[in-house]
Amino acid sequence: MTRIKFKTHGKGQKTDLTALLHIIPSFAFGGQQARLATLIDGLGAEFSHHIVALDGDHSARGLVSENANVAYSSFAMKKSSGISLTNIRGLMGVIKKCKPVIVCTYNWGSIEAVIANRAGPNIPNLHFEDGFGPDEKIDQQSNKRVLGRRFLLRQSMVIVPSHGLERAAREQWKLKNVRRVENGIDLARFDRPRPTGERVNIGSLGSLRPEKNYSRLITAFRALESSFDAQLVIVGEGTERQSLAARIGDTSNIMLPGATSSPADAIATFDLFALSSDTEQAPISLMEAMAAGLPVVSTDVGDIREMVSDENKPYITALGDEHAYHAAMEALIESPALRKTIGLANQQKARSTFSRDQMINRYTEIFSEIVAR
């Protein structure tokens, strides 16, 4: 990794610490937060980090190494249907106080921090767009937000993890400074022995949000559970917990154990990984499952079809084709040999594509480029 020295906290004073301020809607468990934790650990001692959670939730801090140079704080956002001047003034104060070299902002939920930075300190801004919530899809974007991104992010460098988001940023948002950087993970952490029992453990890992559509996964499993010795485990936390729990009822074959600070431990108990989302881009959880040697059944959204091995592609089904989704799950449940073949192909694809070091080196180059300007 390139060694960088930057001028930071005083006139003529230099330090090896590159101070990054991360203003993020939430630091709860999720793919975006897992990538940030991986990035913090991989960048090492030359970088310091301050994570400001706009919802006050720092529950994902357990993903970050205890040795990392990280500070955590919260900012109480004033709820508003539009842009809040109170939020902008407050965030301007946060940025000035932290004195970062680079301000990192995340998704539409931090757009007021982008405005605050431009109106105040005007420090180089690296903006991450990782996908959409339940109210937007890549082909059904809010016109207001399209225009907002087009205008407000034109001076930022925008980072996206998927081909679909790259096209949206260039063609719809009309942004010039867009970089697609593939996510990476610590592959060795997920290389664990597989379960040996007869029961098939179907697992998913992610935030319990509407766009993940875990109801689809539960419906598919329920249609098959009487024919197989199987259980479904959905690892995560979020706003959909209550409705999903009500849908599950008192069955013992479907579990919601909550979020985890060790996704590798959770995935090590799975035989089959399942995604049922209405919208995705390049899911970190999918990379982790592939690195663990798991076959995958999923809806065909975002870059998922391109991410999995050729052997796994027949089990990535068209969004809305519930019959095909059920059939793909059934085929993978009933054949241990098929699961093993596809899992090994996925693991090989993960090792060649989703390297953490490759991602870290790419971001180091980007940080160097931003500051050199």
Rank of each mutant, 00 (worst) to 15 (best):
L153V: 08
R150M: 13
F6M: 15
H49C: 04
H50S: 14
A345M: 04
K144R: 12
I370R: 12
N125I: 14
L153I: 05
L165Y: 07
K5R: 13
G120Q: 00
D303R: 02
M1N: 13
I23K: 06
R3C: 13
G133M: 07
L153Q: 05
S335I: 03
A246M: 07
A168E: 06
Q155P: 03
M307R: 01
L147I: 10
D57W: 07
E182S: 12
I4D: 10
Q172T: 14
K340Q: 15
A188K: 14
M359K: 08
E311P: 01
R167C: 06
G109M: 05
I202L: 09
G133L: 09
A328M: 02
G184S: 06
G12K: 12
G320V: 07
S110F: 02
Y106P: 03
A264S: 15
A230M: 12
G131V: 01
Q141F: 04
I267V: 12
R362M: 09
S73P: 00
S243E: 11
F270E: 00
A220H: 01
F273M: 00
V235A: 10
S276C: 05
G131E: 00
P210A: 15
H323D: 14
K176C: 10
A345V: 04
K349V: 08
R373N: 12
L344R: 11
F47H: 12
K5E: 12
A264F: 12
K349M: 12
S355I: 02
G203L: 00
S80M: 01
R118S: 11
A324N: 02
P134C: 11
R61Y: 03
V200A: 08
G238Y: 09
Q172R: 14
S298R: 01
L205N: 08
N361W: 01
A327V: 07
K176V: 15
I304R: 03
V94S: 00
R356H: 11
D278Y: 10
R150H: 14
L126W: 05
M359E: 06
D310P: 03
S142C: 07
K97H: 03
N177V: 08
L17S: 13
D130I: 07
E288G: 06
A331S: 11
A289N: 03
L152F: 08
R373V: 08
E129T: 09
F151Y: 14
E369S: 14
V64K: 04
F132T: 09
F273K: 00
H163M: 06
G238A: 10
D300V: 04
S277P: 01
I51K: 01
M157Q: 15
I202C: 07
V301G: 01
I342H: 08
T239C: 07
S80E: 05
A223M: 12
V101C: 06
A331Q: 09
T317Y: 00
P124M: 04
A289F: 01
R305C: 07
G131A: 02
A113Q: 01
E112H: 03
G293A: 06
R154L: 05
K7F: 11
E182N: 12
L43A: 09
E306W: 02
I4C: 11
